[in-house]
C-alpha cells in the first residue's frame, strides 16, 4: 500500500504519514500526541485545508503524530507528505 511521510517526532515537530485510503472513504484524519486533546479541532482543520489547497480529491488516510508542532509546521509537514505521495517534489 502506498505510503509516504514527512517531518519528525522531535520537539515542536510532527510526523505526518499519508496512506492510500479505502475507496469511497474520502479523507480520514487521525491525530495523536501532546497537542491532540486541546488542539485536535484546529489541527484537523489545517490538515483538511492543506489537502484542499493541493486540490487532491482522492481517498487518503492522514495520520499525525504530534510533539508540539505549531500550525505552520503541521501545514508544512502535511503539504510535504502529500506532495511526496503524489510523486512530486516542491
Amino acid at each position: 500500500m502506498k505510503t509516504t511521510s514527512a517531518g519528525t517526532i522531535e520537539s515542536m515537530d510532527c510526523l505526518v504519514t499519508v496512506t492510500e485510503g479505502a475507496s469511497g472513504n474520502g479523507i480520514a484524519v487521525t491525530i495523536t500526541g501532546s497537542s491532540a486533546t486541546r488542539f485536535g479541532t484546529a489541527m484537523k482543520k489545517t490538515v483538511l485545508a492543506t489537502v484542499k489547497e493541493l486540490q487532491y480529491t482522492g481517498d487518503i488516510s492522514i495520520a499525525v503524530q504530534d510533539n508540539g508542532a505549531l500550525d505552520l509546521v503541521l501545514a508544512a509537514r502535511t503539504k510535504a507528505a502529500i506532495l511526496r505521495f503524489l510523486g512530486g517534489v516542491a
Binding site: T37, R38, F39, G40, T41, A42, L70, D71
Partner: peptide, 9 residues
C-alpha cells in the same frame, strides 16, 4: 497568535 484556538477540556 502562536498557538491558535484551544478546544475546552
Amino acid at each position: 497568535n502562536l498557538t491558535g484556538p484551544m478546544d475546552p477540556v
